[in-house]
Amino acid sequence: MTAGPAPAKVLFVAGTGRSGTTILSTILGQLPGAMAVGELRYVWERGFLEDHRCGCGMPFSRCPVWTAVVDRAYRGEGPPDPVAVSRDLLSRLRILRIPSMVLRQLRGRPVVPPHPHDERIAALYTALAELEHPAVIVDSSKLPPYGKILERLPGIELYVVHVVRDPRANAFSWRRVKVTGDRDDDATMERLELWRSSAMWVVWNYLVEFWWPVERGRTVRVRYEDFVDRPREAVERIARLLDLDASRTPFVGERSVSMQPTHTVAGNPNRHDRGLVTLRPDEEWRRAMPRLHRVVVSLFTLPGLRHFGYSLRG
């Protein structure tokens, strides 16, 4: 009896936006055998519909890697309706659905209800594995419910990196104006009110811990502050989890990385960085964040502050 193809090993980088997930994912994608694809849950909107730049610099529609992957995934017939898939994902991943997701899990049912589009999503990962042959696909889609969709897709073996950042730094970053660099315009990234970014920080981080506890053996937690302080150590730890060669990291110093172009489809603007990149702690919030804003975020996130090892005084 002939064995079927080995499942695609997917590293799901989970947490909240503006927590350093993009730079960590991009560095991991430099490891031999790993491929960073960015936030692949957004490919339907930002790739197929809006034709944002791939991490390689080409528009998504002209990137040779993604052209080949899409052709392989959908047998030359083109992708399913990207508007429908994008709308479906937006609906199924909403934070307001969390209570029903938890209830479904307690009843032994799939956390996120299955949908016919799931097969189309799985086809992209399978085609990536078949064409690019990465030992690990690094997907920084972050949202825990999307990770639960991936977890039950056929042909995927899921691992998780949970990235946590001080919620005050996270909220401050969400208020910054950032040009995406994805198109030839001045489009900026989404900005969130303090209460909304704080609520997301609490819900998403606790859900990641609830659904993928470190004790299960396929999850590692990384605090942003520890990562930028000792990035090589963090990357080597994750590489060992994935059975990648931890001795062949892209570091040329303790904090400097030699970055090659990736094929990421969405994420923070630093996914476009290449050449020598030096990691530095982003501590601007400590001197620039208004005291009232700090107090508001601290109160919103108080249980999580202590739980994830952050001081109330910041």
Rank of each mutant, 00 (worst) to 15 (best):
S86K: 04
V112D: 08
P99Q: 05
Q105V: 04
L131S: 09
R92W: 01
S100F: 11
Q105N: 05
H117R: 11
L93E: 10
P99R: 10
S91Q: 14
R97P: 00
P99T: 10
V85F: 00
S86N: 00
V102F: 00
V112W: 03
L124K: 13
P116H: 01
E119H: 10
H115M: 11
L106W: 08
L124A: 01
I95C: 00
R92H: 07
E130C: 01
L131I: 11
P99N: 04
L131D: 05
Q105H: 04
V102R: 13
R104S: 11
R107L: 15
L124W: 09
S91C: 11
A123E: 01
D118R: 13
L93R: 01
L124I: 15
V85P: 02
S100H: 12
P114W: 09
I121N: 05
P99W: 00
R92P: 08
E119K: 12
L103W: 13
I121V: 11
R109K: 13
M101Q: 14
D88E: 14
P114R: 13
R107K: 14
L93N: 12
D118L: 09
M101A: 11
V112N: 12
L131R: 07
V112S: 08
G108C: 05
V112E: 06
H115T: 12
H117G: 01
R87C: 00
S100R: 10
S91E: 14
P116T: 10
L90S: 14
S86V: 02
L128C: 10
I95T: 15
R104D: 03
D88A: 15
R107V: 03
R120W: 03
V85G: 08
Y125S: 01
L90C: 01
L89V: 04
L106N: 03
T126S: 15
Q105M: 14
H117D: 01
P114M: 08
L124D: 03
I121M: 09
L106H: 01
